[in-house]
Design a protein around this nucleic acid. Structure first.
Lengths: 166, 166
DNA sequence: TTAATAATAGTAATTGTTACTGTTTTATAC
DNA sequence: GTATAAAACAGTAACAATTACTATTATTAA
C-alpha cells in the first residue's frame, strides 16, 4: 500500500507524486501551500469555510472550490486529517498523529484532548472483525469550560430577575 | 439534568413529556412509532432516506421532513442514536447502549463490533478536561470482509486478462 | 364535542460540498 | 528563454442532506 510519495523539486517547493490509483503528478500550488501553513498554525480545527475566509486575506480571489479541493487532497495525502463530528461541517487538523477530540454539544467547538492514545484498540478490534481494520477515531462529547461558565452566569441572572420581580 | 420523562396514556400508546428546555408535551404519532419500530427491527444502521423509503410502504405519503424531524426527536429523547461518519449521510441505530462501529472505507457500510465497551474512557478523559464529558463515540475504519473478497476477485481477473493478452 | 396544540404533508429554502468550464500556473523538454 | 502538456485555478452551476415554512390533520385534555 505505498501510496503517496513526497518529493522536493529544485526550487525546494514541494510537490507530490500521487499513487497508482490516479496516476498523476501533483504540481506545486501557492494556494495549497498556504492552506497547509494556515492549518499548521492553528490550534483549533477550522472548517473549510473558516479556512476560506482566512486564506482570502492572502489570496483575495481564491475560490471556495479550491479550498475544498485542496483540503480533500491534503487529507488523502495524509498531510492533514479530516474530523467529522455530529454537527454540520467537517473540520481539518494539521496534527496527523492520532489523538482524541472533545466536541462541545453547546457551541460546537472541537478541542484536542492531550490524553495518552490507546494504541491497542485497533489490534483488539481486528481480532474479532472479519474484515481489515486500519484505524479508528474517538470523539468525546460534553460541554466546554466556557459554555459551563456561561450557563452558570445565565442561571444567576435568571435568579436575580426573579428576585427583582418579587 | 432530568430531561425527557416517558409516560403511557390510557390507550397505552406512548407519548412523551419533553424537558424544560422546550416546554412542550409531545403527542403520540403513528409515524414516529413506526419509525422507531422499523429501526428496532434492523441490524444495520439505516440513513434517513432508507427509513423514508421503508416507512412509505406503511404510510405511503409520509414526508421526508417527518422522517427527519422524528429521527432527530427520537435521538434527542435518547430512544435512538445518531451515527455520523466521514461519508455523507447520518445513520441511525435503535441500540442506544454504547458500542463500537466499523465503517467500510470502500462501500460505506456501518457494522456493529461486538467488542467489550471500554467504560473507563470517559472518566479518564474527564480527569484532564476542563469542561464536562458526558460520553464518547469510537468509530473504526477499514475494509469489510465483502469488499476484501471483491478486491481479491478483481485482482485475479486483471491477472487473467494480462495473461490472455500475452 | 370542543378547544388547544402537536404533528403532518408538501414544498421551498439552506447548507456543505462537488462538478464543470474556460483560463492561468507549473514543470519539463527543447 | 520558449514551447508544450497537464495540473490547478476562479467562478459558477449543480448536488445531496437537511431544515424551515405553511396550511391542514390528528391527538389530547377538558
Amino acid at each position: 500500500m505505498a501510496e503517496n510519495v513526497l518529493y522536493y523539486n529544485s526550487n525546494n517547493s514541494r510537490y507530490y507524486y500521487k499513487d497508482v490509483k490516479f496516476m498523476r503528478t501533483l504540481k506545486y500550488s501557492r494556494q495549497r501551500e498556504s492552506i497547509l501553513e494556515f492549518l499548521q498554525g492553528r490550534e483549533d480545527h477550522p472548517t473549510a469555510d473558516t479556512v476560506y475566509i482566512n486564506i482570502r486575506r492572502i489570496y483575495p480571489n481564491i475560490s471556495l472550490g479550491t479550498v475544498y479541493r485542496n483540503l480533500s487532497l491534503l487529507a488523502s495525502l495524509g498531510e492533514i486529517c479530516r474530523i467529522s463530528c455530529e454537527d454540520g461541517a467537517d473540520r481539518f487538523d494539521a496534527v496527523t498523529k492520532p489523538h482524541y477530540h472533545v466536541v462541545c454539544r453547546c457551541c460546537g467547538r472541537v478541542e484536542d484532548l492531550p490524553m495518552k492514545w490507546e494504541i491497542d484498540e485497533d489490534r483488539r478490534a481486528a481480532q474479532i472483525y472479519q474484515g481489515r481494520i486500519d484505524g479508528h477515531t474517538t470523539c468525546f462529547y460534553g460541554i466546554c469550560a466556557q459554555c459551563l461558565e456561561e450557563e452558570k452566569n445565565d442561571e444567576k441572572s435568571a435568579e436575580n430577575s426573579l428576585t427583582a420581580m418579587a
